[in-house]
Design a protein around this nucleic acid. Sequence first.
DNA 1: TATATATGAAACCATTTGGTTTTATTTTAT
DNA 2: ATAAAATAAAACCAAATGGTTTCATATATA
Lengths: 114, 114
Amino acid sequence: METSAKKYDVFQAIADPTRREVLKLLGEKELPISEISSHFPMSRTAIAKHLHVLTEAELVSGQKVGREKIYRLHPEPLQELKQWLSYYEQFWHNKLSILKHVVENSEDVKRETD
Amino acid sequence: METSAKKYDVFQAIADPTRREVLKLLGEKELPISEISSHFPMSRTAIAKHLHVLTEAELVSGQKVGREKIYRLHPEPLQELKQWLSYYEQFWHNKLSILKHVVENSEDVKRETD
DNA sequence: TATATATGAAACCATTTGGTTTTATTTTAT
DNA sequence: ATAAAATAAAACCAAATGGTTTCATATATA
């Protein structure tokens, strides 16, 4: 299965904003490559490469259906991120200064949950 | 303050495994650059660059004390990551509405700001 | 069958990244 | 006053990254 030969891990995969947008799109529903790329100001080929990176990180998988390749979200590897994060939660749980940060980012919260 | 001119965001900052190790080290205690770099098989200069990236992402800050520069962890920006992740938890907590997700998320916000 | 559609693959390119080495500056400590 | 220690800054470099264009292949469809 060669799972240890992965070139991209989940940390690298989500580092790129385009790939994060792709994940979000696929969170809503499965989509073929060309449909995905229609949401971005770059070529289909570029998106295909991003999908390749996401595939290596096992965050998405693509299935050939007819002449299309349908991609779907595969969110499980994000658990590794959550786990990594959990170590740092101890630092902000007891800090008063975090309030400022949360308030500053409340706009983001609203936007992302629309 | 030039906060919008940041070259590195938190997603990029944590993409590199060396930088994640640096964060973990600084989670234990504040350290000067040379002390940090002694934990890695690369030059002090390389580590200084990583610290610069982490500084731009506001995950660490360095204070000059005598001839040393002491770095400390600044974990707040990781909240953005947690927030981003929270969207995807609906998929592995499995099914149900985004409403549930939003409600859970707002609970987190309240708890964390106590 | 011919054509349009969807993807795959390869070559290419500029910029960024992650490292190096070298040189300079600042701050102790002898 | 020197020397050592800690960092800073700059030049340099190879490889990776994120994009492009071009060409090929597979699959529907008129």
